[in-house]
Amino acid sequence: MSIQHFRVALIPFFAAFCLPVFAHPETLVKVKDAEDQLGARVGYIELDLNSGKILESFRPEERFPMMSTFKVLLCGAVLSRVDAGQEQLGRRIHYSQNDLVKYSPVTEKHLTDGMTVRELCSAAITMSDNTAANLLLTTIGGPKELTAFLHNMGDHVTRLDRWEPELNEAIPNDERDTTMPAAMATTLRKLLTGELLTLASRQQLIDWMEADKVAGPLLRSALPAGWFIADKSGAGERGSRGIIAALGPDGKPSRIVVIYTTGSQATMDERNRQIAEIGASLIKHW
């Protein structure tokens, strides 16, 4: 068994979910400061990975656009189908120029040979490839089937209604394609530690997140040497930005962190900087 497989195998399969305990108010002060700096709502939650206990939260039950963070949930649904014998990671999917949508850096290079389901999930999570996400959504039956998958695992909040790139529209008070920080954190924890997926599929999902190549300016920029992070970022219209992550010291994950913001006029660089500063405070007061 590899070190990575050993790491995931040791994560307990508890489903406990406790009331908020504000253990590190310094980080919450930074979250509130980020709201002021961005002129926007910021949602934040931090869960203990083992117990599910809420360590910190701010606007945990307010809706925020999911943006590309939904791609982790999508690949979780795909892996669930693989575990059930309904899908194969090695199955090759062919597509055409007409299937390509905005921001598809991986799929646009494989119009001739197509891509396997495994490769599409990797592209969707590590590079946030939008066409890969749409092709994967098609394999499970579309956005409503992803919502149904989430409902079946106990998440009655998170919903996907549209395809890429329309799902990033982020209209105020529009519940389409949204989640809440508390719901997303709990669902991510179930996918990474629960019995919904096999150990091999849980390991595959966290491996894809660990290999994320487009979230460098966010939490990763604040991470000390030797820390572990597996994450997925998202960006949308109307100043929307977000990240979901499993992270921790000593090379293994010990907490789930979810950060969303929407409604800002700030630049992407400024949104990234504020999320990175929240991450720096989190690590400082770990």
Rank of each mutant, 00 (worst) to 15 (best):
S221H: 09
G142A: 03
R81D: 05
V106G: 05
W163S: 10
R7L: 07
I11D: 01
K53G: 13
A235E: 02
E166W: 12
R238P: 10
L197C: 03
N98D: 10
D161V: 06
M115I: 09
L188S: 05
A245I: 01
G154S: 09
F228Y: 07
E87T: 07
P172Y: 11
Q88I: 09
R91V: 05
D250I: 13
N152I: 10
Q88C: 11
M115G: 01
Q203H: 09
R176S: 10
G154E: 10
H94N: 09
L137S: 04
R59S: 08
T186L: 12
F14L: 07
A170Y: 11
N173D: 13
Q97S: 15
T27R: 02
S57N: 04
G142R: 02
A123G: 06
M153D: 11
P143G: 04
T267E: 12
L79V: 05
L89G: 05
P60R: 14
D161S: 08
R202G: 08
L120I: 05
E62D: 13
K213D: 02
L73H: 06
S68Q: 00
M268D: 07
P172H: 11
R202M: 06
T126R: 06
P165Q: 06
E277G: 10
I54S: 09
G76A: 13
S80D: 11
L135F: 05
S57E: 12
I275L: 08
S240G: 12
F13V: 10
P253G: 08
P143E: 04
H151R: 15
E166P: 06
D161G: 02
L219S: 03
A215E: 04
G216V: 08
I283L: 02
G239M: 01
L167G: 04
G248V: 00
Q88W: 15
D177G: 02
T147I: 10
F149R: 06
I206L: 14
L197S: 04
S254H: 09
I256G: 01
R176L: 10
P224E: 06
K144E: 13
N272S: 07
A222I: 13
R81V: 05
A276G: 10
V42S: 02
A246E: 05
L146T: 04
R7V: 07
P172Q: 12
M153I: 15
S80I: 08
A222D: 09
R63G: 03
N173A: 11
E277K: 11
G114D: 04
I275Y: 04
Q88D: 14
D83N: 04
G236S: 07
D174H: 03
Q203A: 11
L146Y: 06
V82L: 05
R63S: 07
N173K: 15
D212R: 04
T158F: 06
I243T: 03
M67V: 13
S264V: 05
H156Q: 14
A266R: 12
E87S: 05
I45S: 08
P181R: 03
A235V: 05
T186Q: 14
V42R: 00
T158G: 04
E87Q: 06
I283M: 13
A170R: 09
W208L: 04
T187F: 05
R91L: 04
L136Q: 00
T139M: 10
Q86V: 11
F13C: 11
D174Q: 06
K252A: 13
G216D: 08
R162S: 09
A77C: 11
R255C: 02
N134K: 03
G234S: 06
G226E: 13
E210G: 08
G90A: 13
S80R: 12
T112A: 14
R238A: 10
A200E: 15
L28G: 05
W163T: 12
A222F: 09
W208C: 03
T178D: 01
R238S: 14
V257L: 09
E175I: 11
F58S: 08
P224G: 07
E164V: 01
L218V: 04
L218K: 01
Y44G: 01
T27P: 05
S96G: 12
R238D: 07
L196Q: 15
L10A: 15
D99H: 09
G76Q: 01
F6V: 10
R189C: 13
R176V: 06
I3M: 09
D174E: 09
A170P: 09
L89W: 05
A230E: 00
R81G: 06
S51R: 10
R91M: 05
L135W: 01
P224T: 06
G52W: 04
D212H: 03
R202S: 11
G43D: 00
C75S: 07
V214E: 03
I125D: 00
G141E: 03
D212Q: 10
L100F: 12
V214R: 06
I243D: 01
A245G: 11
S201Y: 05
A170H: 11
E145V: 13
S221L: 11
F149Y: 15
L19R: 05
M66R: 00
G85D: 13
G242A: 11
R241E: 02
D36N: 07
V214G: 05
S221T: 14
T126N: 07
G52A: 07
I45V: 13
W163E: 12
L219C: 04
M268T: 07
I244E: 00
Q97E: 14
N134V: 02
I283T: 07
L19A: 15
A183C: 09
Y103N: 04
G76S: 11
L38Y: 10
S57V: 13
L160P: 03
G76D: 00
A276T: 08
L79S: 02
P249T: 08
K144N: 14
N98T: 11
R241C: 03
A222R: 15
M180V: 14
K53Q: 13
L282G: 02
C75W: 07
I256S: 01
V257A: 06
R59H: 12
V42M: 12
M153K: 08
D161N: 02
T178C: 07
T198P: 06
R63C: 06
A266E: 13
N98S: 13
A230G: 14
T178I: 03
G141V: 03
T186H: 14
V78E: 02
A222T: 14
F228I: 08
T187K: 00
D177T: 00
V42C: 08
L282S: 06
T187N: 09
Q88S: 15
I256V: 14
E145S: 14
T187L: 12
T178K: 01
Q204A: 06
P65S: 05
F64L: 02
S240P: 01
A123V: 08
L146R: 06
L223D: 01
I125M: 08
L89Q: 05
V72G: 02
P172C: 10
E166G: 12
L89S: 05
N272D: 05
G154R: 05
T179K: 00
V257E: 01
I93L: 10
S80N: 14
L219V: 11
F14C: 07
G85S: 08
D174C: 06
E61V: 12
R41S: 08
K144V: 12
I283P: 01
I243R: 00
A77E: 06
V117G: 01
L79A: 03
